[in-house]
């Protein structure tokens, strides 16, 4: 998964037109996020070449998360042609993430 931040978000997410981008907002303190992470990494392998996977460490980039209207973890946003098309937050399961991906492939 690509480490995303305020500096590279434009290029990696906003300017990505060849495939959808899944953005995982996480932090070490978020137990739910840590439990999901290995499964999200498995999904990344499964959708290789079809979906780009990135993650933002909310602890490092709180203000940037605010600017993306994210104030809760875990949150997953899906971008298509640079636009946010869907988001899931709080009661996140790996099935819900995959469902969101499949809907937007």
């Amino acid at each position: 998964m690509i480490e995303l931040n305020a500096q590279n978000f434009e290029q990696e997410v906003k300017n990505e037109t060849s495939m959808p981008v899944l953005v995982d907002f996480w932090s070490e303190k978020c137990e739910k996020c840590m439990a999901l992470m290995p499964e999200v990494e498995e999904l990344e392998k499964k959708y290789e070449g079809k979906v780009k996977f990135g993650k933002i460490d909310a602890q490092k980039d709180r203000r940037f998360c605010w600017s993306l209207k994210v104030m809760s973890l875990p949150t997953f946003q899906l971008y298509k042609n640079g636009e946010k098309v869907e988001e899931i937050t709080q009661d996140v399961t790996i099935d819900k993430i995959e469902e969101m991906i499949n809907k937007n492939l």
């Binding site: 932090s27 137990e31 996020c33 709180r62 104030m71 809760s72 937050t89 709080q90």
Partner: peptide
């Protein structure tokens, strides 16, 4: 929910 409403302080305290 997720935009200021939260059910997990340890997950979200940083944002606040």
């Amino acid at each position: 929910t997720g935009k200021g409403v939260s059910y997990c302080a340890t997950c979200d305290a940083d944002f606040f």
